[in-house]
């Protein structure tokens, strides 16, 4: 399984609290009892993870809708 997410770059982003540049790091995502690992921009000091709007309103919303009720 490819861990890298298309089009999501860590370059250019700073952690607001630590002032550290974000780095692409593996992040475990758990939803409905299933876990999978993806690479997302993350602060190496505090672990804060940046979820870009494209991901939040794209695939993450798709997952939520898939598993939501009517």
């Amino acid at each position: 399984m490819k861990a890298e997410l298309r089009g999501i770059k860590a370059e250019g982003w700073l952690c607001r609290n630590c002032r550290e540049p974000l780095q692409p790091m593996p992040v475990n995502i758990t939803y409905m009892g299933s876990s999978f690992q993806v690479e997302l921009p993350r602060c190496p000091t505090c672990g804060y993870t940046f979820i870009p709007p494209d991901l939040a309103y794209g695939k993450m919303l798709e997952v939520e809708k898939l598993l939501e009720d009517k």
């Binding site: 861990a3 890298e4 997410l5 298309r6 794209g58 695939k59 993450m60 598993l67």
Partner: peptide, 20 residues
């Protein structure tokens, strides 16, 4: 999945969406 781009290989999210 609707969000997938057919031009590139599926990523972990795509595979999760497909499986789910």
């Amino acid at each position: 999945p609707m969000a997938a781009n057919a031009q590139t290989a599926p990523d972990a999210f795509d595979e999760f969406i497909n499986k789910a």
